[in-house]
Amino acid sequence: MEKGKKIVQQKNKVKDSTGFRVFQVINTVIMIFVVFVTLYPFVYLVAQSFSSEGAIYAGKVSFFPVEFTARTYQVILSKPNFFLYYKNTIVYSLLGTIISVAGSALLAYPLSKERLVLNKFFTPFVVFTMFFAGGMIPNYILIAQALHMRDTMWALIIPGAISTYNVLIMKSFFASLPGELEEAASIDGMNTYGIFLKIILPLSKPIMATMFLFYIVGIWNNWFGPFLYLDSKDKWPVALYLRQIIMGATGTAEIGAVSDEASQISANVRSCCMVLTAAPIICVYPFVQKYFVQGMMIGSVKG
């Protein structure tokens, strides 16, 4: 008890010391600066997306919209297939993320068990794919001609379903779980699949949430894959559609279009498209933030 009281007294002295107060002030100032630097670009995009083209060209936009207008949003959202593209993106993102997380977990779990036969043989092959790839043309031939996935959503989901980097993170997490839990479940008669589904996965919410966020952001923002493999416009994701709008607006501005609508779009369409693309992911992040922080701390603390 006396030792405990001494420790508490020492902690209180540290908190009351001038050095600790100075540290708190400096730390608070630094964190406010980091938050400002992080948030300002997005705040600027939102402000620019609601500002007039004249204010944007004049450089008057900073934190708040100048000469408020939502005309560009009206132009983009009034397109007949806009919400179809959003629906496609949601389907591709959710389905692709489920397949990617499940596949990564099924690969990472056996790799985390050093006692398994051929574990050390397969691990280098997995790491090898992190540094070397076939290239764009071989991948295109594989997907379009060998697998016959061209103009299907599977061309966007299957080829890049498993990320080596994410597999290695999950492998580290599974390896950090107490082996005694698996041994106890095995003694009770549970097989490998039962252990994985009923013991490992419930304990893996942090890493699963982290992987979910990684994969869904990558799929949601992907426009290059659909640009290569999708011929039918009704299968486009919203990222590719907004990219086409940006390219069209940029081309219109370059050839000197003078209509009000074209001028407005060419001035702030990039900001509107970025906001429309990023907003859904930003809304998802608060729900997985707690698990995301825990998952990213994997391997940082030992003991």
Results as ranks from 00 to 15, higher is better:
189 G>R: 02
190 M>R: 05
190 M>P: 00
190 M>G: 07
192 T>G: 10
193 Y>P: 02
194 G>T: 08
195 I>C: 06
195 I>G: 03
196 F>H: 06
197 L>S: 14
197 L>R: 11
198 K>W: 05
198 K>S: 13
199 I>N: 03
199 I>S: 02
201 L>Q: 00
201 L>P: 04
201 L>W: 02
202 P>I: 08
204 S>I: 00
205 K>G: 06
206 P>Y: 00
207 I>Q: 05
207 I>W: 06
210 T>Q: 08
211 M>A: 03
214 F>R: 04
214 F>V: 07
215 Y>C: 06
216 I>C: 10
217 V>P: 03
217 V>Y: 12
219 I>T: 06
219 I>P: 05
220 W>F: 11
220 W>C: 04
221 N>C: 12
222 N>Y: 11
223 W>F: 14
223 W>K: 03
224 F>M: 12
225 G>D: 07
225 G>S: 15
226 P>I: 13
226 P>Q: 13
226 P>C: 13
227 F>L: 12
227 F>M: 15
228 L>A: 12
228 L>R: 05
228 L>Y: 09
230 L>V: 01
231 D>Y: 14
232 S>A: 14
233 K>N: 12
234 D>W: 03
235 K>R: 13
237 P>I: 06
238 V>E: 04
238 V>I: 15
238 V>W: 01
239 A>Y: 04
240 L>D: 03
240 L>W: 06
241 Y>D: 10
242 L>P: 01
242 L>G: 04
243 R>T: 09
243 R>N: 09
244 Q>W: 10
245 I>D: 02
246 I>A: 02
246 I>Y: 03
246 I>M: 03
251 G>S: 08
252 T>I: 02
252 T>G: 09
253 A>E: 04
253 A>N: 07
254 E>T: 09
254 E>F: 08
256 G>Q: 10
256 G>T: 01
258 V>F: 10
258 V>N: 11
258 V>R: 14
258 V>Q: 12
259 S>N: 11
260 D>I: 07
260 D>W: 07
261 E>N: 10
263 S>Y: 04
264 Q>G: 00
265 I>N: 08
265 I>R: 01
266 S>M: 14
266 S>N: 00
268 N>C: 02
269 V>R: 04
270 R>S: 01
271 S>M: 00
271 S>P: 03
271 S>G: 02
273 C>Q: 01
273 C>G: 05
273 C>I: 04
273 C>A: 15
275 V>Q: 03
276 L>C: 07
276 L>P: 03
276 L>Q: 08
278 A>S: 12
279 A>T: 13
279 A>S: 12
279 A>H: 12
280 P>M: 09
282 I>C: 11
283 C>K: 07
283 C>E: 09
283 C>L: 15
283 C>V: 15
284 V>H: 02
284 V>S: 04
286 P>H: 03
287 F>I: 08
287 F>N: 08
288 V>A: 06
289 Q>E: 14
289 Q>N: 15
290 K>A: 13
292 F>W: 08
294 Q>N: 13
294 Q>S: 11
294 Q>C: 10
295 G>D: 00
295 G>W: 02
295 G>P: 05
297 M>P: 07
297 M>T: 14
297 M>A: 13
298 I>K: 01
298 I>M: 11
299 G>E: 13
301 V>K: 13
301 V>T: 13
301 V>G: 12
302 K>D: 09
302 K>G: 12
303 G>L: 11
303 G>D: 11
